[in-house]
Amino acid sequence: MTNLLRVELYKLKRNKSFWVIIAMTTGLSTLLHYLVVIDWWTMSGTVFNEAGLSELNALSPFTTLLFFNLIVSSLAGFFISVEFSSSGVIKNQVISGNKRSHIFLAKFLVFSLGAIIVTILIPVIIGILLVILFGHGDIINTSNLLYLGRAYFLFILPFLGYTGLITVLAMITEDSGKTIIFSILFSIIMFAIEKFPKPLLIETVFEHSIFYQFSEVFKHTMTNGEIIKSLLIGAISLMIIILCGIFMMNRKEIK
């Protein structure tokens, strides 16, 4: 497993698409934060407004499934799917005598690490740096840091669940384009379920899914019960998705 993790990290570091996504996220994040900080772009009704962190409003898109899916699925497409294509190097990993479950886990973990870097770390770090640079450093106080820490800590679990889903999708489609398209369709469906009226059963299922947690964890105040519920939903979903991924990988015919 350690060998596989080292290989995946080696590949991620040399993946051109990963660096292109990093450059694009950095540029886009800088631009959005800059526009928000200089008050050129005013956003209302965001979770960060409610928390008194309107200067960090540009983080909102990066916590919205419809938007961050574009980043995550692109990375999955060019980091995972390509390896399963006809000339795919996945063959070498299987032939090398590695357990398929380990191959899946290593890919999932390193892909998730890359996704966290481009979707969470870069926007947050750039946001904080720009806020300080433009003279709003006073908002980076203990209370707000605790809020951001709690929110992002709780955000990571459902986020990992989602990267797990995308890992499975990338493995099934074996094509970067299909991975991106299907994930966009999927995120649109989730968006529609969230925004439009729905039967009670679907509403209940949705409210107990990781998709609901993406916005729920950014509430300014959360009760202990809500925090535990969020942790449980994230952890259980993650476990189920990983087990499904391993199950599918173990039965997959490698082309």
Binding site: T2, N3, V7, Y10, R14, N92, Q93, N98
Partner: peptide
């Protein structure tokens, strides 16, 4: 680099 990937893979 291709061989390095395989070297790491096989430990």
């Amino acid at each position: 680099e291709n061989l390095e990937v395989h070297r790491l893979q096989k430990g």
